[in-house]
Amino acid sequence: MKNNQEDQLETQDIEIALLMEALYQKYGYDFRNYSKAHIKRRILNRFNLSGMQHVSEMIHESLVNHKFVDQILMDLSITVTEMYRDPGFYRTLREQILPTFHSLPYIKIWHAGCASGEEVYSMAIMLREEGLYQKTQIYATDFNPVIIRQAKEGIYSINRMKEFTANYIKSGGKAAFSDYYTAQGETVKLLDTLKKNIVFATHNLVTDSVFAEVNMVVCRNVLIYFDRTLQDKVIGLFVESLPEGGILCLGSKENLQFSIHAPLFNPLIVNEKIYQKKIHF
């Protein structure tokens, strides 16, 4: 006989699984292979704010109320990011990887799961300072259309500029960071010229396929939310997208060690989780 707590836990887990099934069947958003503990925290947060009596009510609401779906998508999106997050990673890119791009006629970079775009603009600024931006095409993608619109705007709270500026300096920035934005009251707007070679688009790593060959994939702090099966599937997309010698950048706590695709990559800079697709494999 289960005790009350365990019974309630089981019920809630089933309700959440059914909610994920509903989102998938109705809208094609597939969270079924995300970390269960993470999904549960986010969904129960929304549930506690909703005033509903049972999690299962969220299933019906998400089937009929598009605003509610947008809200859930936002809850399940990873929206915490910053410019030059992990400055050491950007410094390494600047000093060790970007110089090798000078010999390429054209550079394509894919920011997969770019959220509100902070790291995309960080890259654009760095490419510009290294004299590479003119010949670069950046694809910035996220599954969430609302967040992609935010990314495209390039408008951020002025409160964050102190942190971003400190990161920029630590990453080896070569100008004054304030050169790259204009303040508008409580917000700052990044220079429009930084967007010139960036395409922002919705793309779902779980359900969509590869759309271009790129020289470098940047996908940081996205894979940690996926189970092993889904991680392998998504890394498989990157394998397809990268030519031999192409670069894959992961988050500081992510690695390829346990992936079925590990044999296809050489760890190029182990500490910063920068990998290179092997040549002549």
Binding site: S35, K36, A37, H38, R42, V80, N221, Y225, G251, K253
Partner: peptide, 19 residues
Amino acid sequence: PPNYHLLVEPDRSFTLTVD
């Protein structure tokens, strides 16, 4: 790890998040 939440999954494996 610094700057990551640490969660325990139902199968007792760790998840790290940047929420």
